[in-house]
């Protein structure tokens, strides 16, 4: 692991990092998670599954697309094996996301085991927030930012799940659907804010490929989109760079 040195202008004050993490988490991600998990909680209730399961799925899977896949496939009557496989394929994004995130958060080599715990808290929210904020935070304090941000997000996600489950009769169906719709829209605007050219290229290449692969190979759609779209975007970006030089 290369140890990155603190650059001039990086935040080195721990309490400032804590404040930043809380502010970033509460400003929007925590609310979106609260509301989209309300949508999920009410879906679980309508599917006649228990509250404990809803909470376990939110905290344990921590990725709405996989959670929706699980409930949907189970309700449709798929066998355990295929449901688990479906969830695995719907959540494959966590592999490249963890690989591209952990090296930004260097740790003492004795502390590598804790990364297996930290990885559980990674979601699109914390991934995007980390990628945006980490360049301004000294490497030693990035973990603090990530943990605080992640705990707030997970807490509100679990809270939302419980609220959605318990208040299912109070939330009109149209609004529950709207809350589930909030999730992809929020992801989209969160990612539309990126300015790195390679990221924008990858998003624009990935979107149509995702639909294409979903139509021809629905089970492997995201893996194929990542492998083909990501590599394509990577090559386009390299070409652009060498031309620019």
């Amino acid at each position: 692991m290369t140890r990155q040195r603190a650059r001039v202008g990086m935040i080195v004050d721990p309490s400032e990092v804590s404040r930043l993490a809380c502010r970033d988490a509460i400003s929007f991600p925590a609310f979106t998670l609260l509301f989209s998990m309300i949508g999920f909680g009410s879906l679980v209730h309508q599917s006649d599954l228990p509250l404990l399961m809803a909470v376990a799925l939110t905290a344990g899977i921590w990725g709405l697309p996989g959670q929706l896949t699980l409930v949907e496939m189970h309700v449709a009557g798929a066998s355990l094996f295929f449901v688990v496989l479906g969830v695995a394929l719907a959540n494959a994004r966590f592999l490249p996301m963890v690989v591209s995130f952990m090296p930004l958060m260097p740790s003492r080599s004795s502390n590598v085991a804790s990364r297996f715990v930290l990885a559980q808290m990674l979601s699109i929210n914390s991934w995007a927030a980390g990628l945006r904020r980490f360049p301004d935070i000294t490497p030693e304090l990035r973990r603090r930012y990530y943990v605080l941000f992640g705990v707030i997000c997970m807490g509100s996600g679990v809270l939302g799940t419980v609220i959605g489950f318990v208040t299912v009769k109070l939330v009109p169906h149209e609004i529950a659907l709207g809350l589930i719709f909030m999730n992809p829209l929020f992801f989209a605007v969160l990612l539309a804010g990126v300015t790195s050219r390679s990221a924008v290229t990858a998003l624009l290449v990935g979107a149509p490929l995702g639909l294409f692969f979903h139509a021809i190979a629905p089970d492997l759609d995201l893996l194929l989109t990542g492998a083909v779209g990501g590599t394509l975007a990577f090559l386009i970006d390299r070409r652009g760079r060498s031309k620019a030089l």
Binding site: A92, S198, T225
Partner: peptide
């Protein structure tokens, strides 16, 4: 970029 491509595909 693989992550971004997968997220783009997932959202679509």
């Amino acid at each position: 970029v693989v992550s971004y491509a997968m997220l783009g595909g997932l959202i679509a």
